[in-house]
Design a protein around this nucleic acid. Structure first.
Lengths: 241, 241
DNA sequence: GCCCGCATTTAACCCAAGTTAGCGCGATGC
DNA sequence: GCATCGCGCTAACTTGGGTTAAATGCGGGC
């Protein structure tokens, strides 16, 4: 399996990815770097010269306040560029950390710049990928601002199921979810205690199981309904970009 | 004054914008469209063929839940593209509405596509502009998830002051803020009643005044400190992109 | 100069989520 | 085999922000 296959699946859910553009992408990659669980991949504010594609494991974007409060702003699954935005921003406004052991493929910014000069359609696909992040961010703002804790957790789980389905590593019934309740709390802006209460509630209603890092949802549509989940923000429409 | 001057100021705060790229941008614009206060500019889910640059007024991106809850996910000031991401996404996950009377310049996607084929550096600047939106979104997630109501409101005000300063329409002491308390509540994920309580508190501490659609902050640094505001997410660094 | 409608303000009461503290358990290590 | 440590879970109590409702202010239209 090539290191870009999962990314191609993700992009192919939104547009055609011609073979020559896949080649150009492959040519832009340099080494694959392994990280241990808990290890820092990118530190906030440091100048970046490469962007990184996740091929295995789970990665979080984390923002820290000076007094120790922390908020996860995005969780990345294989096939996601974890910091493609650093190609433009150069310095990130957040840390990137490995939640589980993970492998990341490096794409030097110099090679990405060349792609913008020779492959306009591929450039638009990469740009699209960062705007998908943006749509995900907006959904998280709504969850944090206007959804109840149970809706928030359920919504996040629905998002995970569909995103794993797109890259072929899960489906609407089950997907990996190798998080602690503390980390889930940091993603939802809740306390671990309350996350635990909400999980009890969702479990007792038979909406989900979550054991050994795997999420199982017997009835996706029911969970989606109680969580007010609408998949439109995932932009799963194949059309020319 | 050209319709792209404010955008050029915004971009020039992050990189050099050569004259020929400015010309290419000007050439891509078609008409300027006026909107009334409260008017809908973009409806969620409808296929878009143009993106729009705000030249005057205030614009909000709004996400609605089926039961009437609403969350503003971004507020746009002159010089912002309000829906450049529609160039890639084609269908937006949110509405765009005019908060005040506003004027928007249209950039057909066809012209933007040509820019991606002939002007790689300008393409990167436009891509950068959407990643700045993303950084703003992440800051809003932190505000909604981990900041107190007072910090949240203060943080948003600091963000406004600096963004207006960048385009030369305000400074750290004062800027336009033509919102109702209800709209501010929808931006912060609070109720109007609580927004009012928080504003009383901030006013009584002499941190700000807000009357007739104008915000005045006597001591920016003090407001920034109590709000835990760090301007890094605005990426105000001039370097090659 | 008087209405009307909307925005702001205040007050009383309520509840979803936070705080603090402690227990049980399984994995890890020596 | 035993100590340790992180994680999940529970309980008792507190609180920040929500809810509801009712005043008050105020700008624009005629």
């Amino acid at each position: 399996m090539s290191e870009i296959d999962l990314l191609v699946r993700k992009l192919a859910a939104r547009d055609v990815v011609p073979e020559d553009e896949q080649q150009a992408l492959r040519a832009a990659a340099t080494e694959t770097v392994p990280y241990a669980a808990g290890e820092e991949v990118v530190r906030e504010g440091e100048r970046q010269t490469v962007s990184r594609l996740l091929v295995s494991g789970l990665i979080a974007r984390v923002k820290l306040l000076d007094d120790g409060r922390r908020q996860i702003t995005e969780l990345h699954i294989p096939g996601d560029f974890v910091d493609l935005h650093s190609f433009l921003l150069k310095r990130l406004d957040h840390d990137v950390i490995a939640v589980t052991p993970a492998r990341l493929v490096s794409y030097p910014h110099e090679g990405l710049r060349k792609i913008t000069e020779q492959w306009p359609h591929l450039t638009r696909l990469l740009w699209l990928s960062t705007t998908l992040d943006g749509a995900g961010h907006r959904e998280w703002i709504v969850s944090a601002g206007r959804r109840t804790a149970a809706e928030h957790v359920g919504h996040l789980f629905c998002e995970f199921l569909l995103r794993y389905e797109v890259v072929g590593l899960g489906d609407r019934r089950r997907c990996p979810l190798p998080l602690t309740q503390q980390q889930l709390a940091d993603a939802c802006g809740l306390t671990p205690v309350h996350v635990n209460r909400v999980l009890q509630e969702l479990r007792h209603e038979g909406l989900l199981e979550w054991r050994a890092g795997e999420l199982t949802v017997p009835d996706f549509d029911r969970l989606a309904q109680v969580s007010r989940f609408d998949p439109a923000f995932l932009n799963l429409i194949r059309e020319p970009r």
